[in-house]
Nucleic acid binder design. Structure first.
Lengths: 202, 202
DNA sequence: GTTGCAAAATGCAGTGACTGCAGCTAAACT
DNA sequence: AGTTTAGCTGCAGTCACTGCATTTTGCAAC
């Protein structure tokens, strides 16, 4: 039972607890008063911390809303690694994103709340896209390794960009038209519709 | 000769001149001193305007770098409208983006300069992506009309998102690997590689 | 349990983007 | 010339975010 509980010490535990507490009270305040009208000072006060301390946990106010993005990317990459090497790249991407779609579906309320905030505060939406651009890079790298392609081959990046675009479009559609069925199905269908041409390669 | 010269009056002409002057001196300052280290005060001074006046021309400092984005979107939409209605959507998109690729190619130095600024100042990159998200919406709307699809049909958005992703990936590849040939060719090829599955629909 | 160390929290004093408001200048119209 | 009005300007203020100096606190060695 080496690292089952990763709370190595009190210090680490407190750190994590403070981070989640900040994110929690922040989202609550955002929903009550709006993102723009909530100041960092208020958030820090609600989390019982000094304003200055906020910035050792989050680089920007935007990041507060997108706290789990890092995990999400890791999840995609893990799933991608788990797919058999013989499987065509587009297939592997489809499966990986389907898994993530399951996660989203399971956390619908959280996702929806975030969507609401993004809809009214452009800076958060912008930051979200910027983080996704980082995902694109990471995905492209992973695909380059997977396909054993040249570092200069544009195909991995093209695949990564397209997959992310499909995911984003599906997510948005799902959030706005929930009657069209569960997200994983939507993602599957979208990937398939694009995939006819792609699944052939490798 | 009603609106051949759209300089209706002195007021309009001055307005336009000031706007371009601001953008010009700003880019110059950005290149010399870096984006972050250039203040709005300096820009206004260099353009011989009051700092407060800057904000009646540009909403944010970021927008200064992306001054021409609106035109670019209009261009894409115009080209799309110009394509024959019988042409499959993916084909039409490919042609439209190829035209824009020509524009980019012709303005390589400007594009490259902007790319450099974006690479070092994340907020500009984020803003750029956010504007592109607006393009996605506009493109999706145009495609919905073109395909006479239901307002709820996810396909137009999927097409729009994918096309933009392809364009972005191609552009980035072109900027980093100029030896791989002209941008329009790259765009064409990328569209084709994805298109096998798509060109069938409509 | 006391002592010494390092990480983290805090306080302070800034910088700079951006906003609202109120007054002024100059273009435009009669 | 006289009036209207769009747009420039100055001023005061808010707030995200930063660097630096200081204090607190978990932790480990003794």
């Amino acid at each position: 039972m080496a690292e089952a509980t990763k709370s190595t010490g009190l210090r680490e535990r407190k750190k994590l607890e403070r981070r989640t507490r900040l994110a929690d009270v922040a989202v609550e305040l955002f929903e009550r008063n709006g993102f723009e009208k909530t100041t960092i000072e208020q958030i820090a006060a609600a989390a019982d911390l000094a304003p200055r301390t906020f910035f050792s946990y989050f680089a920007t106010k935007d990041d507060l809303v997108l706290a789990d993005y890092t995990d999400r990317l890791r999840r995609i990459l893990e799933e991608l690694d788990r797919r058999p090497a013989a499987e065509p790249a587009w297939e592997a991407l489809r499966s990986s994103f389907a898994t993530v779609a399951d996660d989203y579906e399971a956390e619908e309320s959280r996702i929806r709340r975030r969507f609401t905030i993004m809809a009214t505060s452009p800076s958060v939406a912008a930051r979200s896209l910027q983080l996704q651009a980082g995902w694109e890079q990471a995905l492209a790298d992973a695909l380059t390794r997977r396909l054993e392609a040249d570092p200069g081959d544009p195909m991995p990046r093209l695949l990564a960009a397209t997959a992310l675009a499909v995911m984003r479009a599906s997510l948005q559609h799902w959030l706005l038209n929930i009657e069209d069925g569960p997200l994983p199905d939507l993602v599957q269908r979208s990937f398939d519709q694009l995939g006819v041409g792609l699944s052939r390669m490798r």
